[in-house]
C-alpha cells in the first residue's frame, strides 16, 4: 500500500515538474531570441547553440557517457596538417599567443584573429601578464619532449580542445575557424621550439 501511494505521488509530481522545466526552457529560448541582434560580423545566429554547447551549458558537467560521445564526435573534426609539417615560426607564434583580438562585433573581418592564449595560460619565461583559467604551459616542449604522440596531441588540443575534454573552456581554434592551419603551426613552434621563450630562459 505504501509502495502504491509513493508511486502515485511520483506519477502525479513528475510530469508536473517536467512540464515546468520545459516551459521555463521554452521561455528562455524565446527570451534569447528576442534579446540579441546582428551587429557587424557577429550575426544573431551565433546565439543558437550547437548540440555540445547546449549539453555543456549546465552548472555541472554532463554524465560521462555524454562527455565520451561529445569527445568522439569532436575528435572527428581534427584536421592534421596536410603537408605533415607541424611547426612554423615561434616568433610569429608568440605574436598570435599575445593577441586576444578577433571575432567580436567591433572587429571588421572574421580573419586575422589572435589566439588569446595569454588570457588563460602562462606560457613564456618573460611574460608576467597571464591568466589562470587554463594550466601553465611554461616550458611546454622542454618538459614534454617532442614525440609524435605529444606533437599530435598538442595539435589536436589547439585545433579542437573539446575532443579531449567535452566541456573544456578552451575554444575550438581550428574547428571553429578562429585560427588558420598556418597560425596553429606558429603556435606549435612557440610551444616546442627549444629557442622559444616558452622553453628557453
Amino acid at each position: 500500500m505504501k509502495k502504491i501511494s509513493t508511486l502515485a505521488v511520483l506519477l502525479l509530481a513528475l510530469p508536473g515538474a517536467w512540464a515546468d522545466q520545459g516551459e521555463t526552457y521554452a521561455e528562455f529560448k524565446a527570451m534569447m531570441d528576442r534579446s540579441f541582434k546582428t551587429t557587424g560580423i557577429a550575426a544573431k545566429h551565433r546565439m543558437y547553440q550547437l548540440d555540445f554547447q547546449k549539453e555543456c551549458s549546465q552548472e555541472k558537467q554532463p554524465p560521462k557517457a555524454v562527455m565520451d560521445r561529445i569527445e568522439a564526435e569532436q575528435m572527428k573534426t581534427i584536421r592534421y596538417p596536410a603537408d605533415g609539417k607541424y611547426f612554423g615560426d615561434w616568433k610569429e607564434g608568440e605574436k598570435i599567443a599575445v593577441s586576444g583580438r578577433g571575432l567580436t562585433w567591433t572587429d571588421k573581418t572574421p580573419d586575422n584573429n589572435g589566439g588569446g592564449c595569454y588570457n588563460c595560460h602562462q606560457m613564456s619565461h618573460h611574460e608576467v601578464s597571464y591568466g589562470t583559467i587554463g594550466p601553465s604551459l611554461l616550458e611546454y616542449g622542454k618538459v614534454r619532449g617532442s614525440s609524435e604522440d605529444i606533437v599530435k596531441y598538442t595539435w589536436g588540443k589547439i585545433y579542437n580542445a573539446k575532443a579531449y575534454n567535452a566541456c573544456s573552456n578552451m575554444p575550438r581554434n581550428g574547428d571553429a575557424e578562429i585560427l588558420t592551419e598556418q597560425q596553429i603551426k606558429h603556435l606549435m613552434a612557440f610551444l616546442f621550439d627549444p629557442n622559444s621563450p616558452v622553453n628557453k630562459k
Partner: peptide
C-alpha cells in the same frame, strides 16, 4: 531562473558563457 540559464549558456565561435 532565466538569468541563471543565460549565465551558463555557451554559444558563438568561442563556445563561451
Amino acid at each position: 531562473e532565466l538569468g541563471k540559464l543565460a549565465f551558463y549558456h555557451r554559444a558563438g565561435p568561442m563556445d563561451f558563457s
